[in-house]
């Protein structure tokens, strides 16, 4: 828990209409702690494997790596009793339909972990005609575990990351615990197997494209995003040495800078996308 969350006044600055005089007194944070601890210590994954990664998932469940040490020993074969869906392997278009259905059948709170390159972004099979390039095109993913396949220890690291994420959730913030909001949570629309997979959320876009096609206009080609080429001068050896010294002053500094740049690029990309109306 960060010290920021321990400031109760800030915590209560949410949708919870607490009377002003009570805001300093009610200790929802501690409750969050207990609530989160019990939730993260009894994460029951769903017993379902898709592909190669499932073998490593079973390896993680077996006695050598044994994720029951994290309270995950009860792998439930039914979605109704499970909290965590480990998408372990390549998601195909044919399989995404049952997966979304299973996800809808899981009770809240529910978490999704994309295990391996395939589930995260298509993996080596991304170009395939029957492969969904990333489960996050259909379901909200909480943790991505890269690797092809991730070793059991890498998966355990991902599970710990998920536990940390749960630890960071506050009971007082409805964004963190939407399942205590008013009304039932919205089910994810189930994809339809037509001539190719059809995402119901994209119906309008598909219809527009079909109309364009019927009118004989060009369709189905998205303009390529402009490639931003930075014509970078190759620095001299001396200049490079100076740069390298800075680089080696601290790994942290370098990573920070890289992260900042990535964030900036991401922000630009998002702005671009927003402008396009994607």
């Amino acid at each position: 828990m960060s010290s920021k969350e321990l400031d109760l006044r800030q915590v209560h600055d949410t949708e919870f209409p607490l009377p002003a005089e009570m805001q300093g007194n009610v200790a929802i944070t501690s409750l969050s702690k207990i609530y989160n601890w019990s939730r993260r210590s009894s994460m029951w994954p769903m017993l379902f494997g898709l592909a190669c990664c499932a073998i490593e998932m079973i390896g993680t469940a077996s006695s050598r790596f044994d994720f029951s040490r994290f309270g995950m020993e009860v792998m439930r074969a039914t979605p109704r009793q499970s909290d965590l869906m480990i998408v372990s392997g390549t998601v195909t278009k044919k399989m995404i339909v049952p997966i979304v259905r299973l996800y809808n059948q899981m009770p809240e709170p529910k978490y999704v972990m994309a295990m391996g390159a395939c589930a995260s972004g298509g993996g080596p099979f991304k170009e395939g005609y029957n492969v969904v390039s990333g489960i996050d095109k259909y379901l909200p993913v909480d943790v991505y575990v890269p690797g092809c396949p991730p070793t059991p220890q890498a998966l355990l690291y991902g599970l710990i990351a998920l536990q940390k994420k749960i630890d960071g959730q506050s009971l007082a913030n409805l964004d963190d615990v939407p399942w205590y909001g008013v009304g039932p949570s919205e089910p994810t629309p189930i994809p339809i197997l037509g001539p190719d997979i059809i995402d119901p959320r994209q119906m309008d876009l598909i219809r527009r494209q079909a109309e364009l096609a019927a009118a004989g206009k060009p369709y189905g080609v998205r303009e390529l995003p402009p490639v931003v080429k930075t014509t970078k001068a190759i620095p001299s050896k001396a200049a490079k040495a100076a740069v390298a010294e800075v680089v080696d002053e601290g790994e942290l500094k370098r990573r920070e800078e890289a992260a900042r740049r990535r964030q900036a690029v991401l922000a630009r990309k998002r702005a671009r996308d927003a402008a396009k109306g994607v």
């Binding site: 298509g122 991304k126 170009e127 390039s133 001539p195 190719d196 059809i198 995402d199």
Partner: peptide, 14 residues
């Protein structure tokens, strides 16, 4: 990313 060049962002082809 291949998605960025694909019309629906997901690899479908009608």
């Amino acid at each position: 990313r291949a998605e960025e060049r694909n019309v629906f962002g997901s690899n479908v082809r009608y």
